[in-house]
């Protein structure tokens, strides 16, 4: 079994509130609780960005949390998927245009899945995260493909071969 298999079967999620109203955050907490039980997909909430695969972001990005958001995203290892939870994380929502809001997570980091609603329902969050799983798998494949290099022999071409043209580097005997 490879790491990729475990990553697919048990992605760890990281949650960051970038200035939202808490509504989506308590729904994420409700997802972890027995009724909706996101753990049946093997997911657990982790507080460490360096161990997580899926970043759940809520809230319009405020001016003070934007650098923290980028920092957390940068600390997550590849492959990683970002899910924007809620209307304000997707577009800015009702906070769009307020003086301390930037309006949407995708202004700063690439977002893979947008979950709508104010506030999002737990079913929608689970749907979004399951969609994120497919994207995570695809990203994983892309990464592995780039690692496995095509090592076919290069056919002879018309280019001059330096080794044939240049003089030999055996030192000429001194007289």
């Amino acid at each position: 079994m490879k790491l990729a298999t475990y990553r697919k079967k048990s992605p760890w999620i990281l949650h960051y509130n970038a200035g939202g109203c808490n509504g989506c955050d308590i729904e994420i907490l409700a997802c972890l609780a027995p009724k909706y039980d996101i753990e049946r997909f093997g997911m657990i909430n982790t507080g460490n960005p360096k161990q997580s695969d899926i970043l759940l972001v809520t809230g319009p990005v405020t001016k003070r949390s934007r650098e923290r958001l980028v920092e957390i995203y940068a600390q997550m290892p590849e492959p990683k998927v970002v899910v924007a939870c809620g209307a304000c994380a997707s577009t800015g929502g009702v906070f769009r245009g307020m003086y301390n809001c930037e309006g949407g997570v995708d202004q700063f980091i690439p977002v893979d899945v947008y979950v709508c609603g104010c506030g999002t329902r737990p079913e929608q969050i689970i749907d979004g995260v399951v969609q994120a799983l497919a994207i995570l798998e695809q990203k994983n494949k892309d990464m592995e493909a780039s690692v496995r290099l095509n090592t076919q022999p290069i056919a002879e071409d018309e280019q001059l071969n330096r080794r044939h043209v240049a003089a030999s580097i055996t030192p000429t005997p001194t007289v």
Partner: peptide
């Protein structure tokens, strides 16, 4: 404690 300051008071008085 002010990471989530959005400016709602201003928007309520203008927008």
């Amino acid at each position: 404690v002010y990471y989530v300051h959005r400016g709602i008071e201003k928007a309520c008085c203008t927008k």
